Computed example of a mutant assay.
Amino acid sequence: MFKNILCCWILLKYYFYEQNTIKIFNPMAKYKKANNCKECPYKSYSLTKLHENDVDLIQGSCLIVNFKKGENICKQGTEVTHALYLAKGSVKLYIEGKNKNLILKLVNQSKYIGLQSLFGDRIYNYTIAALEDSQVCMINASLIMDLAKKNVDYLFELTKNISEATNFVYKKIIDINQKQLRGRLADVMLHFSENVFESDRFELKLTRKEIAEYSAMSMENTVRILNEYKKDGIIGIDGRIFTIKQPEILRKIGELG
């Protein structure tokens, strides 16, 4: 009886919190309350580590928000109020600079985005924008922290996500500092093929300018090297459709730097 009363009180607490923070969303974005997290085909594996009552708490706190292509999901320098789970679509995480941006990472559906900020200083150090129409589950940050404190298995799953994202950024920094332009772009093409799209043929939703921002290169050098790879038969390019024809050569270029 006491547990049921406590759960109801917590749900009410986070419900009213959501009503007060709804203004953080893009006013044009469409949203709704979650109603069946347990059966959702896009749910996070971390939910399997929670007790049923705790999943109910997440469901009661969760808002499902639809973002159109190009819309910001969160803005660099703003406060973290929610954990963000990308249920559908794809997004880019990027640092906004004075003269140019640096795209840190692309993320596809069924993944948390921005957890390192949630467990850090609670300020977004990057902007997250939708690369296509996307659906994001926004869960009250305080609730996620409370559940992580009392459930070590759940915390472990979240920590793995943070560790993978952090290690990826570390490698990216090393590549930017140590590799020449051709090696850098070769690694990027292989990463898109093997890790992001898991296919040797994929539709890249980035513009040429964004590919340059992802590779920390000028757009002129990016276009020039892509055309060289195409001319040499290493990759195929048809608009936004890329085909990795000779991955072993790209890998060798990347290794040589």
Rank of each mutant, 00 (worst) to 15 (best):
A165R: 02
W9H: 01
K43L: 03
G239P: 01
Y170A: 04
K150C: 03
I5Y: 00
Y45E: 13
S163I: 08
K252C: 02
Q135T: 14
I174P: 01
H51A: 12
G89N: 04
N66V: 07
Y124F: 15
I128A: 15
T166I: 06
E157C: 10
G114P: 02
I95V: 14
Y14E: 08
N140E: 10
Q180V: 14
I174W: 00
Y170M: 06
N108G: 09
D121S: 10
G257T: 08
P247E: 06
A216Y: 10
D153N: 13
F197M: 03
E52Q: 12
K98W: 08
G60M: 00
E71L: 13
E194P: 03
I253L: 15
Q109P: 00
R224W: 14
K149S: 08
F2M: 00
E164M: 05
I103P: 13
I22L: 13
D56N: 10
L250T: 07
L158V: 08
G97C: 12
N35I: 11
G236M: 07
E164N: 05
V223Q: 12
L50G: 09
Y154G: 08
A148C: 06
Y14M: 06
D121Q: 07
G97E: 09
I128W: 10
E203I: 15
E132S: 07
L181G: 14
D187F: 05
T207D: 06
Q246E: 14
K23S: 14
G89R: 05
A83V: 03
F2H: 00
M189N: 05
L93C: 11
P247A: 07
L93H: 09
Y229F: 15
F192Y: 03
N177A: 13
G233I: 14
S110C: 05
D56C: 11
V65H: 02
M189P: 00
Q19C: 10
V91M: 11
K111P: 00
T243P: 02
Q116C: 01
L12H: 02
I113N: 02
F192H: 02
A148G: 05
E248A: 04
Q76K: 11
A186H: 06
N72H: 14
E71H: 09
R184I: 12
K92I: 13
E157L: 11
G233V: 14
E228F: 15
L143Q: 03
L118V: 08
K69I: 10
L12M: 01
H82G: 02
A212Q: 09
D153C: 11
